[in-house]
Design a binder for these strands. Structure first.
Lengths: 88, 88
DNA sequence: ACATGATATAGTAAATTTACTACGCTTAAC
DNA sequence: GTTAAGCGTAGTAAATTTACTATATCATGT
């Protein structure tokens, strides 16, 4: 009654939430409060245990002021390269 | 058991799906088949009766080769202006 | 040692999304 | 005038998401 069964075991969706939170020093609890969901809900999303609603996706994107595609992806994110980190 | 109760009556999310389908001459049935959901599911989404999963959002975006933000929005879309339509 | 904050696990319950079936209504094609 | 396609409405059932509680671990700070 929890994990996406469509894809057996693989995450329903990948996310950069842990990295983005780390960068901005915001905890799951704080993010949860800012988007109006339960803390554990953020946990489930970060672990890829399910795909959030688009609605929630937009609220999270608003907190980080980033497009949804920068935070979530159906495929794993690549590690950031030099140009991303130095402002190419 | 159907509509978003969080926001009483307002659509959970707005979408340009009807316009995009019209532009490309694709029916709900065809879109549904292409993203792998039931026809009625597309109907519900187009009527704003609920907010699809981010997962499904990505699949729909892939069909149109557009970013999610171009297809869905928490706020109503404005009508396209001249520059959008003439290639500004 | 103790308290605290952050995260993980487990389990239950409620809400929302998705699937499916059946019908009614229009419009276009024949 | 019948057929078929496309869309809307209704209703039920299944699956997934979200809420919430409790407990455990780990790291930090005092």
């Amino acid at each position: 009654m929890k994990k996406s069964s469509r894809n057996g075991d693989r995450p329903a969706l990948y996310t950069r939430l842990p990295m983005l939170r780390a960068e901005r020093g915001i905890s799951r609890k704080e993010l949860a409060e800012r988007v109006g969901v339960h803390v554990q809900t953020i946990g489930y999303i970060e672990r890829g245990e399910y795909s959030p609603s688009l609605d929630l996706g937009f609220r999270i994107a608003a907190v980080f002021e980033l497009p949804i595609e920068a935070i979530f992806s159906p495929q794993p994110f690549a590690t950031l390269d030099a140009s991303a980190l130095t402002g190419g």
